[in-house]
């Protein structure tokens, strides 16, 4: 019942499983700290120094510094936690989601205006449908 491996068949999608939650615990908790204005100010003043206060892996810190959200998710980040980073940057969910697709912001916005990404071909890697 708790085997979630079938989800790996869905293209371009990362499920926030127990394993990823454990790996990303401090990355996500760092994100939570940005809900306080004083922490946002300290982070903006010296991002590296602020990150060094957290028991995060170097890969996690680099992913945050680069605002590489796919890398953040690979390191155990969850989008609702990562939202605190792009909110601190004054960016939207659409901006952040767009950066993860390999499309430009204009291309991504245009795709959404035309009904979004089609489900056809995006259901299953194995079955190619």
């Amino acid at each position: 019942m708790s085997d979630l491996s079938e989800y790996d068949d869905i293209p371009g999608t990362t499920l926030f499983t127990a394993q990823r939650s454990r790996k990303g615990y401090w990355l996500n908790q760092f994100c939570m700290s940005l809900m306080k204005p004083e922490n946002r100010e300290r982070f903006k003043a010296d991002e590296r120094a602020y990150l060094d206060e957290w028991p995060m892996s170097e890969a996690q810190k680099q992913a945050v510094l680069a605002r590489d959200y796919n890398a953040c998710i690979a390191e155990g980040g969850n989008i609702y936690f990562l939202a605190k980073i792009f909110s601190t940057d004054g960016k939207s969910y659409q901006y952040a989601a767009g950066t993860m697709t390999g499309m430009t912001q204009e291309e991504y916005a245009e795709m959404m205006l035309h009904g979004g990404r089609s489900i056809e071909g995006n259901r299953s890697k194995k079955e190619g449908r």
Binding site: P11, G12, N70, R117
Partner: peptide, 11 residues
């Protein structure tokens, strides 16, 4: 879908 290369999916 708000994450990964499949972001923007609408069905």
């Amino acid at each position: 879908q708000l994450q990964g290369p499949r972001a923007g999916l609408i069905n």
